[in-house]
């Protein structure tokens, strides 16, 4: 981890890695979504609407995974003052918010044909909406802090505290009676109630979106590092 603490060393790895993750992710997404739309079977209960799973579940995982990454980066920023940790946390916030929003919108579009409603104030949907608000609050707080010349430490503390919402989202379908279905896939128990014909395009889609998410975070980190370099040089010249 300390090896990557050096921005020059980080860039040496990030430059070739960005297109690999980006194009690799795009190819996997296109393939998985084509299979999800035209090859995977319809569900015996939900009918064709089950095809929304191939975009909804990866978006949900990335919305939650994004905040987990943001919290880890915030922890590293606060404890080890890792120079890239703050940049990484900030780079994750916007894509995390976009995927949390996509999860809510696609879930809502899935809810109408299956539940008969776009929205229900149940535990899973509400905790996911709170995650989106947390992302927006983090972005606003970090921007405000930096405009005042701060290092983003208050935003980092917020990032850590906000992580409490992740297990709440995860276990919301177990602790409360919700309209949302229970957990279908468990990586810890390596088990799934989803049929293999639907599971593999879902996992490929999730892998593709995850790679693309990684590429987006690297692009945003590279942009932030370049901006820092420009500001430092301009300060030196003036």
């Amino acid at each position: 981890m300390q090896t990557l603490a050096n921005p020059a060393r980080f860039l040496k790895i990030a430059r070739p890695l960005t297109p690999v993750l980006g194009w690799g992710g795009a190819l996997l997404i296109v393939g998985a979504l084509a299979v999800g739309l035209f090859v995977a079977p319809r569900d015996y209960l939900q009918g064709e609407s089950v095809r929304i799973i191939y975009v909804h579940v990866p978006a949900a995982w990335l919305g939650m995974g994004g905040w987990t990454g943001l919290a880890i980066a915030s922890f590293m920023q606060l404890v080890w003052r890792h120079p890239l940790a703050a940049i990484a946390a900030r780079a994750i916030a916007v894509p995390g918010a976009v995927f949390a929003a996509l999860c809510l919108v696609t879930g809502s579009l899935w809810g109408k044909p299956t539940w008969g409603t776009y929205w229900q104030w149940d535990a899973r949907l509400t905790s996911m909406l709170i995650l989106l608000f947390l992302y927006i609050a983090y972005i606003a707080l970090d921007d405000a802090e930096r405009e005042r010349g701060g290092e983003g430490r208050i935003a980092a503390i917020f990032g850590l505290v906000g992580a409490i919402n992740i297990p709440i989202i995860h276990y919301s379908v177990e602790y409360w009676n919700t309209l949302h279905q229970g957990q279908s896939i468990s990586f810890l128990r390596a088990s799934s109630t989803v049929d293999a014909s639907m599971l593999w395009p879902l996992l490929v889609s999730a892998a593709g979106f995850s790679l693309l998410f990684g590429a987006i975070v690297l692009m945003r980190m590279r942009a932030a590092l370049a901006r820092q370099k420009v500001e430092a040089r301009l300060r030196r010249y003036s």
């Binding site: 739309l37 064709e48 929304i52 975009v55 978006a59 894509p95 976009v98 919108v105």
Partner: peptide, 24 residues
């Protein structure tokens, strides 16, 4: 509903990727 979900996801993902790439 399926096509709306896929279109919005494509729009959000491509837009975000393009924006991040252009800023970088």
């Amino acid at each position: 509903f399926i096509l709306a979900s896929y279109a919005l996801t494509a729009l959000g993902t491509v837009g975000l990727t393009w924006w991040s790439w252009a800023s970088m």
